[in-house]
Design a protein around this nucleic acid. Sequence first.
DNA 1: ACTATGTACTCAATTTCATGACTAGTCAAG
DNA 2: CTTGACTAGTCATGAAATTGAGTACATAGT
Lengths: 191, 191
Amino acid sequence: MALRHAVLAALLDGEYTGYQLAKIFDVGVSNFWYAAPQQIYTELAKLEKAGMISGRQVIQLDRPNKRVFTVAEAGLDELAAFAAAASKPLSIRDDLAVKVQAVDHLDPAPVLAQLDERAVEAAARLALFDRGMRRLRGDLDEGEFLHSSERIGPYLTYLAGCRLEREMRDWCLTTAALLRSRTASHTEESR
Amino acid sequence: MALRHAVLAALLDGEYTGYQLAKIFDVGVSNFWYAAPQQIYTELAKLEKAGMISGRQVIQLDRPNKRVFTVAEAGLDELAAFAAAASKPLSIRDDLAVKVQAVDHLDPAPVLAQLDERAVEAAARLALFDRGMRRLRGDLDEGEFLHSSERIGPYLTYLAGCRLEREMRDWCLTTAALLRSRTASHTEESR
DNA sequence: ACTATGTACTCAATTTCATGACTAGTCAAG
DNA sequence: CTTGACTAGTCATGAAATTGAGTACATAGT
């Protein structure tokens, strides 16, 4: 009972298809919720059955037809109840952090490669979020937008996403640099 | 097949009981992996059956007896294979971020309360991590420790945890302040 | 001409996770 | 002297998530 609310929150921004939602949730960190495409489709089906969203068929000529969804009243009620209830603690799971934790007992080479890769991905998402934020705020500068706009929720989560990705990128870079300098000085000593 | 590696990585630091591990994984963010106590126990049982860890009974007079576990060779091999394989992308899920995303359509009061609460929790974990890091590095300063110590993995993940918690705390505080200033100016206008 | 990529889904099987309830003894506070 | 909190677990159930495969059509590249 949690993905459901993330889907409802995403649908507040307008109509989306399952496919579009799947892409949004696959990027994951922007809205602080990751979900696989298959989860989205099953959740949409459940939500529609429960009357919390309503779907509408859109016929397309050049592409497969699609169904777009909007939040119904019952869905808003559900979201309100969710917001009022206590939050579960943030859940985070990261393979790479586990590998770094064990790195002293392991071959560091693959871990280093993955740290580099992760840093690049984090930087890419940062850029992506930046574009998303610009699109949301239009011509306004950030402070102005945040004070005057009616819809700032998604912008606020973007801000959180930026913080996270920045730190992720920097941590990966400094950690990789440190591990490299250690291996260098070890091989130095053993000569 | 992922909790298993987190458990193995944690056991590299020494012997732990399921109960102790459960507490470590309940704090969660320090090692970037959350797991419920019951998961730990089942995972330990599986790992022992697979010969990746070995348990040892410790008889206690004043408390219930306990079993402590250490990593076996097969466990190290498993960890090495895990580290060499590609990482799954970081998975993050946060109820509170979902609520903030939807906040424009909702009563902001409970969300504000939860942001405050989360900021306090993040600050508490920061302090906790700080103590943990001091314990690990002893008298050395951070740079010295990171270059000379044999075992820096847990320290590196602590550093990541600090980055995360700092940003979490600051985001919660600025977000809550912003939302409050908006409600204030709205009630102003509607007078 | 072939291959890959993108849109837009569905179905099924399995694995993992999360939840609540239970046992059982110790210790400290009210 | 009783209640609650801490240590140290086990068991069972159900919800949620992951994985893999499959369908179908279109466009764009090599």
